[in-house]
């Protein structure tokens, strides 16, 4: 936690001074997965902004969810002789050969958002990712604090069965509430990370739990499912955010809209700004030879109604979510 704070602080403090001096020469190739989700689009937008802020020439290659496209992109970056490569890997294995080529060409590789298979550890400089277990913990801690000593029955909207993010966010949340005997998950179903399924599952939860009267809080593994769940609650005549507390993860613009309307209580941010910390680590490495830690964890920031959701919405809505 402390380390991260320092890193972020360093980034903010150093950027205006260092950037103009060194970064003018830097060219970075970014192999992006594609536009599988709004968050991914926002990450691309933010990465462009962060690069522009530091006068880094960022070349983005959209892989359309295909590893072979990413490998092609990396090869072409190597051939162009870029200063560094950012890679958001679509899968965790199969990177050894192409990353070796980059290493032989002495081009540092930084992973964004996702990690790769442990065997490739020495093939990249660092990985900038969020800790999804921690995200679940932050959500759970907030709920525990907000509920206090009251009994609270929680319903959980899980992500896609088998997705590691879903498993991690469940694990973190479970760990956080395990410390509080008054918090209990009474129903848990998968909403496949989508609004439509989130709404459908919430509808059935409401019916199964006496019209929703016995539900104290909803925890959703992502905001999209929560947006659907909020609609389900409203259609059932319940007041989300008041009758039933909500906490979810991702911090997409629409959840802030709900927060402004008083229909959502809390969200944990999965920041789309992976490129910023990556660029900072890269600059430090290039200029001072500082080898960064193998894992740079991004902040999992909690947003509630107290954090000026309107402002958060305004700052996020243009990012492409």
């Amino acid at each position: 936690m402390a380390l991260k704070r320092i890193l972020m602080g360093l980034a903010l403090a150093s950027a205006p001074f260092i950037a103009p001096v060194t970064a003018a020469q830097l060219t970075v190739g970014f192999s992006q997965i594609g536009s599988e989700s709004g968050w991914r689009a926002a990450e691309t937008t933010v990465s462009k902004g962060e690069a522009a802020k530091r006068s880094v020439n960022l070349k983005i290659a959209d892989a359309q969810q295909k590893q072979e496209n990413q490998i092609k992109a990396i090869r072409s970056f190597v051939a162009q002789g870029v200063d560094a490569i950012f890679l958001a890997p679509v899968v965790s294995t199969g990177w050894d050969a192409v990353l070796k080529e980059a290493k032989e060409a002495k081009i540092p590789v930084i992973l964004l958002d996702r990690d790769i298979d442990p065997s490739g550890k020495d093939l990249y400089l660092t990985a900038v990712t969020s800790d999804s277990v921690h995200e679940g913990e932050v959500a759970g801690d907030w709920l525990a604090k907000t509920v206090g000593d009251k009994q609270c029955s929680i319903v959980e909207l899980q992500g896609t069965v088998g997705a590691s993010v879903a498993a991690n966010r469940k694990k973190g949340f479970d760990t956080a509430i395990a410390k509080h005997a008054n918090l209990k998950i009474v129903r848990s179903q998968t909403g496949d990370f989508t609004r439509a399924k989130g709404k459908e599952v919430m509808e059935s939860f409401i019916k199964a739990e006496g019209g929703g009267k016995t539900i104290c809080a909803v925890y959703a593994h992502n905001d999209d499912m929560m947006v659907g769940a909020i609609q389900a609650m409203k259609e059932a005549g319940l007041k989300p955010g008041k009758d039933i507390l909500t906490v979810s993860i991702d911090a997409v613009p629409d959840i802030f809209k709900a927060m402004v309307a008083g229909e959502a209580n809390a969200t944990v941010e999965l920041t789309p700004n992976m490129a910023g910390p990556a660029l900072d680590a890269l600059t430090a490495y290039k200029d001072k030879g500082t080898t960064p830690l193998k894992w740079i964890q991004t902040e999992s920031k909690l947003y509630t109604a107290a954090d000026d959701p309107q402002k958060a919405y305004d700052s996020k809505k243009g990012l492409g979510y």
Partner: peptide, 11 residues
């Protein structure tokens, strides 16, 4: 109309 939004990836 149900979710008041179009989710091209999942609809």
């Amino acid at each position: 109309a149900d979710i008041m939004g179009a989710d091209a990836n999942n609809a």
